[in-house]
Design a protein around this nucleic acid. Structure first.
Length: 485
RNA sequence: GCUCCCUUCGUCUAGUGGCCUAGGACGUGGCCCUCUCACGGCUAAAACACGGGUUCGACUCCCGUAGGGAGCACCA
């Protein structure tokens, strides 16, 4: 169905009435992967025909999210508000071919009918009151006519009423709708602006979209749109409806579930590639593989293997995936990635200390699942004024602990070489001299003095990274502080 | 109410009629490693929504039921 002369063309078409959220990002991802996998074009289109709710601010948020995730688009962003003339043109075409008509019904009238139909247990569809009005009757100025009809009107699609619409969804297989179910939808509102179902079709036709990949909340719109393609004498694209992403309570993902915007995951310290990886695994899989690079995702992605049922966004697994990606980074990369989060904590690192910073941060890489966590957990390296864990101080920096630390401090002070091995030897000597059976009884006081807490990388590693001067300073400080607040 | 869609461990998923005593991963429990915490290794518990068919044989095909979701706008 796709060949070299006809490369695939897909689009991601968010409406700027909110942030780029997880679900939207996944839709964008699948479009992107599909396009890249088949060397096709990925187009970005902003569906901003809802002037009430669309804002430039949201458009910017969406663009920022796309950039962070690395979804480079090949064409666009196109804005529907800039294509109004085009929609008018297509309405004229339909009007001329008697495939659309003017409807003078008021919103109030319609609402009354809608409620009545619903109350009668019927599907609330437009009953076609204006469907067979003579089109030559006086019309308003909307269509460029010079004759004025004082009544307001909108333009409706004259939908075929018999037979069925059948299409083959790439993810779901064959889907059928009875045309009777579909009513005469509005194409142009009374104020002359086009509606969603119409603009998507006109845009997808004129942009030569070959595959429409979108959330399955659009499944019900598809037959209406297909009728429009038919009326426009345009071939219908292939459709792929993606299952939704749910919150832990199996409800549609919303603010209640935490992060609204994908950009929020950036501030939480997630790597964009990890997000791609996790999002891709929601609804799609490739054997037993869990960790994918972007390249692998592009190489392996296949719409046909996308599942049908909705999936729950599990932040714990997302963190695990993130950690897997973090650990695969080089030491330099980890440091560079973590630096902004350290700065967020008020820790500025001089270029001269990058080597120290790299060692410090990387020594903690097993302990932080996000860059933010990594920054938090390695912060002690950079601050001489430690944040004391009260319980730890109470337990390990008591009289006995300090007595031991004093010995340790002396031994460390006399060391000529300062590296993990030398420090370990000195440590062991003190341990033996004091007849401390378990290493933990000497290591913990030392660890608390050095880090403020009972948790850190191996004590010799911490000592080595900190360096002799800084280590002694911290030991002194711990020894000289009678009671830490 | 009507129409359409969905249904494998708590979660993400593998599975396309016999390979399934249903596999992997996250999470959870246990053990090992160990100077703390992690990491890592091993291990355990944990699922085919239900009921009918079809078939020599169904997680896999068909039909119902139940549950969930979406749409039915001059929102997108």
């Amino acid at each position: 169905m796709t060949n070299n002369n006809h490369p695939v063309r897909v689009r991601f078409a968010p409406s700027p009435t909110g942030h780029l959220h997880i679900g939207g990002a996944r839709t964008a991802l699948f479009n992107y992967l599909f396009a890249r996998n088949l060397k096709g074009a990925f187009i970005l289109r902003i569906e901003d025909t809802d002037r009430e709710r669309s804002t430039q601010e949201y458009t910017d948020f969406i663009l920022k999210g796309m950039e962070w995730l690395g979804f480079e688009w090949d064409e666009g962003p196109f804005h529907q508000t800039e294509r109004m003339a085009l929609y008018r043109e297509y309405v004229e075409k339909l009007l001329k071919e008697d495939k659309a008509y003017r409807c003078y019904c008021t919103a109030e009238e319609l609402e009354v009918r809608r409620k009545a139909l619903l109350a009668a247990g019927k599907k609330p569809k437009y009953e076609g009151k204006c469907r067979n009005l003579d089109p030559r009757l006086p019309a308003g100025s909307l269509a460029g006519s010079t004759i004025h009809d004082p009544r307001k009107y909108c333009i409706r699609f004259k939908a075929p009423q018999t037979g069925e619409v059948v299409f083959k969804d790439i993810c779901r297989g064959e889907i059928k709708f009875n045309r009777e179910e579909l009513d005469d939808m509005i194409l142009l509102r009374t104020d002359g602006t086009p509606t969603y179902n119409f603009t998507v079709v006109v845009d997808d036709v004129t942009m030569h979209i070959t595959h429409v990949i979108r959330g399955d909340d659009h499944l019900n719109n598809t037959p209406r749109q297909i009728q429009l393609y038919e009326a426009l004498h345009s071939p219908t694209p292939h459709f792929a409806h993606l299952p939704m992403i749910l919150g832990p309570d199996k409800q549609k993902l919303s603010k209640r579930h935490g992060a609204v915007s994908v950009v929020e995951y950036k501030t939480q310290g997630f790597l964009p590639e990890a997000m791609l990886n996790y999002l891709a695994r929601l609804g799609w899989s490739h054997g037993d593989q869990e960790i994918f690079t972007k390249k692998e995702l592009i190489a392996y992605f296949d719409l046909h293997t996308v599942g049908k049922s909705p999936s729950v966004f599990d932040i714990e697994k997302c963190k695990w995936v993130n950690h897997q990606h973090m650990v695969r980074l080089s030491d330099q990369e980890i440091f560079v990635a973590t630096k902004p989060y350290l700065e967020e904590l008020g820790i500025e690192i001089d270029v001269a200390d990058y080597d120290f910073g790299t060692k410090a941060v990387c020594s903690e890489k097993e302990r932080g699942k996000t860059l933010k966590e990594l920054a938090e957990v390695s912060a002690f390296y950079f601050r001489d004024a430690l944040v004391w864990d009260e319980k730890a101080v109470e337990k390990w920096l008591n009289e006995e602990g300090k007595k031991r630390l004093k010995m340790l401090r002396e031994a460390f002070a006399h060391l000529k070489n300062w590296d993990a091995a030398s420090v370990q030897i000195a440590f062991k000597e003190v341990q033996e001299k004091l007849e401390i059976k378990k290493m933990v009884d000497l290591a913990q006081p030392c660890r608390v003095a050095l880090t403020g807490t009972t948790v850190s990388p191996g004590i010799f590693e911490v000592l080595a990274i900190l360096g002799q001067e800084r280590s002694l300073k911290r030991l002194d400080h711990a020894l000289n502080t009678p009671a830490h607040k």
